[in-house]
């Protein structure tokens, strides 16, 4: 080694040392800042990272009594490789719940994604501010109702002697059992989801509309542009980034939405059309104690959801230069 290169090495070594020293200095001077992170880290580790270790169950024949405690049992249970996944993918019911997950959430995107945009545009056209505020207040409220309460409200109005069936029979039609009919149940899920969320999403899009520069509208008015043209050429392009971002997010979460709603709403009669991956995991895992198989299904769900979410975020970064993280 020549004298020169040796010098460079010691120089860069010195640099690294100085940097390390600076870091250690910073940390020792700011210990309180790191102490502040501890409670949050404890929660994240227990709720999110310890369960990652539990994913091993998917590759084992898990017997909860094999060890001193459930976690020790994970280590002591026998490896079975991909047997659980094999069992899963050859089971026709797996494809039923997979299909249901896609169909139910797909229907929700198709019907419920455009609706709040249309509502926001219309709400923006209402010039009477009291009327606008009252509308906003009323349609925003169901977002804060729990799924159990919404289930209760709808099972009450849709029951055999409920108000909806009274109207249907008075028009001469037969009663409908909304919660038992395989042809209607998915529609019921979509409608009640809309009932809960359309108002909330309307408010989000309305906020985006109100951020549009109002001089654009004045200029268009002077140019004699009709209202429809103004909506089409100013409002919609103005909120397009928000629309795309919300759509990407919605599609990214297609596998991990609807769980609590379906869990509360469904019953054995409509399992064929309503059972989704996560409700199946719940019944199989917690109900029947089939831990290994249900963890395998849960892992499949998590992996596909992970790909979708990361893909959605990449798409949003490329298209809009905005990312969720």
């Amino acid at each position: 080694m020549t004298q020169k290169s040796l010098k460079i090495v010691t120089k860069s070594n010195n640099k690294l040392q100085r940097k390390m020293k600076q870091t250690i200095n910073y940390i020792t001077n700011h210990i309180p800042l790191y102490l502040m992170l501890i409670p949050g880290l404890i929660v994240i580790i227990i709720i999110n990272y310890l369960p990652y270790f539990g994913i091993l169950i998917a590759f084992k024949d898990y017997n909860i009594f094999a060890g001193n405690n459930p976690i020790d049992a994970i280590i002591k249970s026998d490896w079975v490789g991909l047997t659980n996944f094999n069992k899963l993918f050859t089971n026709s019911y797996f494809w039923t719940v997979f299909k249901n997950t896609i169909i139910i959430n797909g229907l929700k995107v198709i019907w419920l994604f455009p609706l709040p945009i249309i509502c926001a545009v219309m709400l923006n056209e209402i010039k009477n501010s009291t009327y606008r505020r009252v509308t906003q207040t009323v349609i925003y409220m169901p977002y804060f109702f729990s799924w159990v309460v919404i289930f209760s409200i709808f099972s009450s109005i849709l029951s055999t002697h409920g108000i909806v069936n009274m109207v249907i029979t008075s028009m001469g039609f037969d009663r409908i059992s909304f919660f038992m009919d395989v042809n209607i149940f998915r529609g019921l899920l979509v409608f009640t989801d809309g009932w809960k969320t359309v108002g909330y999403n309307t408010v989000i899009f309305l906020a985006a509309i109100s951020a549009i520069d109002s001089t654009l509208y004045e200029a268009a008015k002077i140019d004699g542009a009709s209202k429809i043209r103004q909506i089409w050429n100013i409002t919609i392009p103005g909120i397009l980034p928000t629309i795309i971002l919300m759509l990407i997010l919605r599609v990214g979460h297609i596998l991990d939405s609807s769980f609590e709603q379906v869990l509360v709403f469904y019953n054995p009669i409509v399992y064929d059309v309503a059972d989704i991956i996560q409700t199946y995991v719940y019944r199989m895992g917690i109900g029947q104690m089939n831990f290994s198989l249900s963890t395998a299904l849960g892992l499949f769900n998590s992996v596909v959801a992970f790909i979708l979410i990361v893909g959605a975020n990449t798409a949003s970064r490329k298209l809009l230069n905005r990312s969720i993280w």
């Binding site: 990652y52 539990g54 917690i286």
Partner: peptide
């Protein structure tokens, strides 16, 4: 922790243990 979910059953087992 936001994008990858450990799953319902592992969470249940952690709480149990």
């Amino acid at each position: 922790s936001m994008v990858f979910n450990g799953g319902m059953v592992p969470k249940y087992i952690v709480m149990k243990s």
